[in-house]
Design a protein around this nucleic acid. Structure first.
Lengths: 225, 225
DNA sequence: TAGATTGTTAATCGATTAACAATC
DNA sequence: TAGATTGTTAATCGATTAACAATC
């Protein structure tokens, strides 16, 4: 079986759609419902489930609660992974304060920064000095870190965290981090996302001006990956 | 020609690598250099260029300045697109304050919020009341907006902005926005990104425990995509 | 039962990689 | 010239879609 990154993103979307449908009182859903809410085809939904051996009932769709449990299990959400944020600048601070994570079962447990003025142990999510990072990670068995440092510090922080056992990273810096094979690094590159938008906007305007063949216009349906 | 979203992301990465190489004094680069900095194969680099009719010199690689100009043109960066941010909460405020955009030729010109306490016309990038949004967009011919409102407001804001001429959106809310075909919506779904990490972490741990076939372990090379 | 939906196989589509002729 | 790199074609790989038998 080839585990496919995009499939995981879709499973995550099915899950959040299911949570909303459950809140609306749904007891069962069909692949068509999920397809609509996630913006894919129903064949895609069934194929995704089949990849992870999630089954429903012929003619009867899927039981919402069962399906949620199965998705949570597949996605590893049966266990809570605590998360730290390194670099409490604009983005880091925003993520620290953000309330939405809890609802999704994500727990940010600490921030770390090099600037002593930012340290505050009294906050609900404390901001600690970077010197304490490694010990904290070891003591609390942290497996996931969000990197929101300045570009130049990112690789060093990553190396240090890998040494003390962190396995997965969300990288908000625009640089490409280097890590061993078994480490998961996921990049959120806001520049690149905006540039992608600019490209398509600009392609539309150019083709409007010059009446190019409509080729480019046909391909502006973005959506992530 | 099928324009491919991932290719655009790669072009953007080549561009930022080129900027750094130029700062280091490089006058020309080879497809191999760019491949290394962007983490792809050299065939991929040449194929991407070929798709957009960007050519170099056999044996001589690519002239850094020429290549940058061509990439900027292809990516639509020959023109500056002003950007607004709607919703000055945690994330919105972080993006407003962020200095890094300018370096990449992106200009955030205003923020908008419904909360009158947040309004401040004196800031370098002013925060204005949401009521002024439509007029501002029309007057300044804004084509790109970042949506960082609460979930429930997002669709309404989007509809309003489309009406007054905005063509491209970066959506930071976790919901799927609906828009006509010719509108570009690009989603940054931080939850989903974290869930992707959790999935792979969890898959590693499960396979460690149960000594599954190594299949899953072979597939943890994320990278966006 | 008749009708509708799943689960899966096969077909299609698209993107990446390999390979090599062209050529500077 | 000899060697190295581009540009492009063909081969491969992987993911999505279509279609339909199974079945509740």
């Amino acid at each position: 079986m080839t585990v496919n990154k995009q499939a995981i993103i879709r499973l995550s979307k099915y899950k959040s759609a299911l949570n909303k449908l459950r809140a609306l009182g749904f007891k069962k859903v069909y692949s068509d419902n999920l397809a609509d809410s996630a913006g894919v085809t129903s064949a895609q939904v069934r194929k995704d489930f089949s990849m992870f051996e999630i089954t429903g009932n012929k003619r009867g769709g899927y039981n919402v609660d069962d399906l949620l449990n199965k998705l949570n299990f597949v996605l590893g959400k049966d266990k809570i992974y605590d998360i730290i944020i390194v670099g409490v600048g604009n983005i880091g601070a925003a993520l620290l304060k953000y309330k939405g994570f809890e609802k999704e079962g994500l727990r940010i447990v600490a921030g770390f920064d090099i600037d002593s003025l930012k340290i505050n142990r009294e906050l609900p999510v404390p901001i600690l000095p970077i010197e304490e990072m490694s010990d904290f990670v070891k003591k609390n068995k942290i497996k996931i870190a969000i990197i929101a440092t300045p570009e130049l510090a990112a690789q060093e922080v990553l190396d240090e965290l890998i040494k003390v056992g962190v396995k997965g990273f969300l990288n908000f810096t625009p640089i490409r981090l280097k890590a061993p094979e078994n480490i998961v690094i996921n990049n959120v590159d806001i520049y690149a996302e905006i540039e992608k938008i600019i490209y398509f906007i600009s392609a539309i305007e150019k083709s409007k001006d010059s009446k190019l063949e409509n080729e480019k216009l046909e391909n502006i349906d973005l959506e992530d990956e």
